[in-house]
């Protein structure tokens, strides 16, 4: 009971650090894909190494947060939902790491004609995730602002979906010079990038339901 303020302070610092790590991971992913598209192999590999480390760091922090929540009975009425939310946020960095490593392993061929669209897709998808993190952050300090941030996440997720469909349509309908295998490969990578926005949307949905519970 005496330690409760110190524990709370430590957990607040950890949560902030956790969100920082995820945000850094997302930015690194964006930079990494753009480096891949530009053919900067050395920089791309560096991004891959950084995101790997960031993902590990995020895992270590979330484990510590979970432990503190259970041992010190922090926010006992909402603990399981909040920890679930943090896990879903972790899914975003997991997704970015997996996608970037798939770029490294599979080296997909991205034709010049769709490189700009592909880069835009990455940027919008990342923007969805970038907006999900402040929404989760602000949930802890000012629940009234969460709704605005969630709106942005939903908007960017829809935009990502539209652009991804456009890329897929162009790939299959207009680019006859590509082999079917290349088209399919491109389709998978479009999907992988779309999944980052989807993971961010899951976070937004969880935030909405938590908001209802906390305001009851």
């Amino acid at each position: 009971m005496i330690k409760i303020f110190k524990t709370s302070k430590d957990v607040i610092v950890n949560i902030d650090e956790y969100f920082d790590t995820i945000e850094l991971g997302i930015l690194n992913f964006k930079e990494g894909v753009n480096n891949y598209l530009d053919g900067n192999t050395a920089d791309f590999e560096n991004n891959l190494k950084i995101i790997d480390k960031l993902e590990e760091k995020a895992d270590a922090i979330i484990r510590k947060i979970e432990n503190d929540f259970y041992v010190y009975s922090l926010l006992p009425n909402y603990a399981s939902e909040i920890l679930n939310l943090l896990e879903k946020v972790d899914d975003i960095i997991d997704q970015t790491k997996n996608t970037l490593s798939q770029f490294d392993v599979e080296s997909p061929f991205i034709p010049e004609e769709i490189k700009t669209d592909f880069s835009r897709l990455v940027n919008i998808s990342v923007k969805t995730a970038e907006n999900a993190i402040p929404a989760a952050r602000v949930f802890f300090t000012d629940t009234n602002l969460v709704k605005d941030k969630i709106q942005k996440v939903v908007f960017y997720e829809r935009e990502t979906e539209k652009l991804a469909n456009k890329i897929k349509r162009r790939t299959f309908k207009e680019m006859d010079q590509l082999k079917l295998s290349e088209k399919t490969h491109l389709r998978y990578f479009t999907l992988h990038i779309e999944e980052i926005a989807d993971a961010a949307k899951v976070v937004a949905k969880m935030l909405s339901s938590l908001l209802i519970k906390i305001k009851m």
Binding site: M1, I4, S8, L74, F140, D142
Partner: peptide, 20 residues
């Protein structure tokens, strides 16, 4: 609470002491 914009975890700590 609306005016203070206190962190949920800090609020949790204050509430624990408050309840006591």
């Amino acid at each position: 609470l609306h005016k203070s914009k206190i962190h949920l975890l800090k609020l949790d700590a204050y509430l624990k002491y408050g309840l006591l």
